[in-house]
Simulated assay, not measured.
Amino acid sequence: MEKIIVVDIVPIIVIMALGYVCGKFRYFDDDQRQGLNKVVLDIALPAALFISIVKATRSMLAQDAVLTILGFVGIIVMFMLSYFLCRLMFKHNIQEAAVCALIAGSPTIGFLGFAVLDPIYGNTVSTNLVIAIISIVVNAVTIPIGMYLINLGQSKDNREAALAAANNARTNTAQKHADVAVDPSKDPSKDKNAEIMVGTSSNKGKASHHKIKNPNIAALVNALEQPVCWAPLLAIVLVLIGIRIPDQVAPTFDLIAKANSGVAVLAAGLALSTVKFSLGWETIWNTIYRLLITPAAFLGVGLLCGMGHDITKLSMLVLSVALPPAFSGIIISSRYNIYVKEGASTTAVSTVAFAVTCLLWIWLVPKF
């Protein structure tokens, strides 16, 4: 256990601290910081997700139906519960709650899954199965859902802003007509500037003619256009139809995928340096939800579903969902400048606290 803390947890904290120091001393400017986020979110992370998922097989998913169903349903339920609780308890809008769910509701299974579970339970078929299932759900389901909600929230905000602008324009027009009635010299039809404004407005209307009308479809299309969404979805389709990626191709993806974890943690530290660190109730709640409530829910449901006869597999499942927040969440947060303060604080606190809660769950689960 000491080896896990020293080899896996400490490097994360050190690299995150390095990113924080670099940000504080302005070693990276805003454009460079956004460039790092873009490299991770659009290139390295999609490659890492794709290659990790295509290594799974249909037989692995069918090997243990209870574990597969519990993994798929449980992760999605806890993700959506985090989203709704964030909106209810802390009054955040749609996109803020979506990023909160990507952080508080999703474990960093792709980064720490093998690093934590293999030393404890061994590199076995059962270990690979648990990690594969949770990884597929987190990467191929919750990330697209989160991106869809972010786009949906932004579309809603844009519509409300456009409606408010239209209302203001109508109010101004009514006021101008009233002014003309009093003083005909103020007629806007004689104002050249007014003609320019009308012309500009007409051009904008033509530019938006081809946009998708339905906000839900538009948000879905926008989400699916992101590599971080379509790459894992493509991978899971390949797994389900039984197409295997040749082993000779894997190193190509692995080379860029290896940049994902280190740069993502560094970028998380940079994001944290741009905001005032917060150890408020929301950060504490997100940490408790990620490290205690989620694994406790999986433990309870797992026992009810009869997994108590294989306590090792149940313990692996509980520990896999008790990992710190997925770093993809903080990268998305920083990229879109949404929920940055709370997200970065939650990631930092949860990563440090995991050194304690990890020991707790390893000791507690066998007691049942």
Score class of each variant (00 low, 15 high):
R290T: 04
D30P: 00
A101P: 02
L364C: 15
V66C: 09
V301K: 09
C86M: 07
V237H: 03
A164R: 11
V10F: 11
C358Y: 15
V66E: 03
L129D: 03
V263R: 09
D118T: 13
R170T: 09
P119N: 10
L279G: 08
I75G: 03
Y20E: 07
W363T: 15
A231I: 10
I236P: 04
T252V: 13
I217Q: 06
V66A: 06
A115G: 08
I284C: 13
Q175G: 03
I311W: 02
T283C: 05
L240I: 14
P295D: 14
T124L: 10
Q63Y: 08
G113A: 00
V365Y: 13
M78T: 05
C86T: 07
I109K: 01
E96I: 01
P144R: 06
R290Y: 01
K276N: 11
D254K: 13
L85C: 01
S345V: 09
V130K: 03
E195A: 11
T283M: 00
I136M: 08
N222C: 02
C100S: 10
F114M: 08
L299M: 14
I241D: 04
K367E: 15
L238M: 15
D8E: 13
G23H: 00
F277Y: 14
G23P: 02
G35K: 01
L45Q: 02
A65F: 05
L117I: 11
W281Y: 06
I4V: 10
D179P: 01
I13T: 03
T274F: 02
I43N: 05
V40R: 00
